[in-house]
Simulated assay, not measured.
Amino acid sequence: MDDPDHGYRGEQVAFYDRLVGERGDAAFYRDRALAADGPALELACGTGRVYLELLRAGVDADGLDASADALDRLRGKATEAGLDPDVWRADMASFAADRAYGLVYCPFNALQFCRTIAEQEALLRRAHDALASGGEFAFDVFVPGFDVISAEYGEWQSESVEFRGEPHEFRRRTRISDEVAQEIRVEDELYDADGERVFSESRRLKLLPKREVELLVHRSPFAEWSVAGGFDGSPLEDGDDVQVWTLRT
């Protein structure tokens, strides 16, 4: 995946840690890793929001990400916490692993950075090949909500935040960038108290409704799969905002 929009950089990396609140996913993937028969591998581990939770729980876990800046921040946080991470820079659609994992996982919509069928199929093959026999690939993607798209897409959403001990204004706008391909562009901007822009960043993602994911999984090497409507394992139903998939070898 050769995409200049992919991978956080610079100040956006530092701000990311403040931006993402509690979702319930870190505990979910930690518990899945603890129950797995073998080590775990996180695809798109970023600054370690989920990955470091696994290390704190004593999980033998590796991670990879496309952003060198994000990995540097992860390593710094791990050092402060007395943890020993094993992470490397790689594209999740073309990575190679040198050991077999009991669990491969990809949290927080990161799979949606793979916008083409070729990239999506490549990621599923790579995840499958990295698993030991009986291993699982778990990931979550959001449910495209027409109410949210109609009410919020195309408009800037702003909030006051504290960053590096000072007040800032954070702005986000999500737009449909390709109606035919069902792709979106998410734009983030951060301004300090004097109105000076700290960073401006954008990224493109693929909307993935359930049936489209099902088609991809059907074409993948995985033997069986299931999907839930939340990290509590509840059935996926109309009105849910997250799809939690588990694919098994």
Rank of each mutant, 00 (worst) to 15 (best):
A138I: 15
E42M: 06
F222H: 06
W245G: 00
D241F: 14
F170W: 13
G154A: 10
D178Y: 07
S202P: 07
R99V: 11
G10R: 13
V186Y: 02
S234N: 09
C106N: 15
G76W: 03
R32G: 02
S200Y: 13
V13N: 00
H128D: 03
P107I: 00
V87L: 04
G195L: 04
G165N: 09
T47Q: 02
Y191S: 07
A78T: 10
L34M: 14
E80V: 13
H128W: 12
R125G: 01
C45H: 02
S234M: 07
D192I: 10
L131H: 01
P235D: 07
C45G: 03
V198H: 03
D178S: 08
A127D: 00
E53H: 11
F95P: 04
C45K: 02
R172N: 07
D3H: 08
R23K: 12
R164P: 00
D5A: 13
G58Y: 07
Y153K: 07
L83M: 07
A27L: 11
Q12G: 13
R75T: 14
E179M: 09
A138V: 15
S226I: 05
G134Y: 08
H218D: 12
F163A: 01
F28H: 07
E166V: 15
G82V: 09
Y29Q: 01
R173K: 13
G63S: 01
D86S: 14
R18P: 02
L208M: 15
P221A: 03
R18A: 12
L123F: 06
V198C: 09
E212V: 11
K77C: 00
A70I: 02
A68Q: 08
R219H: 13
G7L: 05
W245V: 03
L216N: 06
D84M: 07
R175N: 08
P4V: 08
A27N: 09
R126I: 06
A90R: 06
A118C: 06
L52M: 08
D3R: 11
H218E: 10
A78M: 13
E22Q: 11
F222E: 04
A97T: 09
R197I: 15
Q12L: 15
P144R: 05
D140E: 07
A130M: 03
R75I: 11
P144N: 07
V13A: 01
K210Q: 12
R173V: 14
D241M: 12
E214Q: 10
G233F: 05
A70T: 04
L83T: 09
L208I: 12
P221E: 02
G239W: 03
A14W: 09
S158Y: 08
D65T: 05
E237D: 15
G76Q: 10
S234T: 14
V242N: 00
T79H: 08
D194N: 12
E162A: 12
L111H: 02
Q12E: 13
L41Q: 02
M92R: 05
A223T: 15
S202C: 10
D69V: 06
A70C: 09
D178Q: 07
D240G: 09
V143M: 03
A14C: 09
P209S: 07
F231A: 01
D232P: 05
V244Q: 01
S67E: 05
D241I: 15
R9Y: 08
R219L: 15
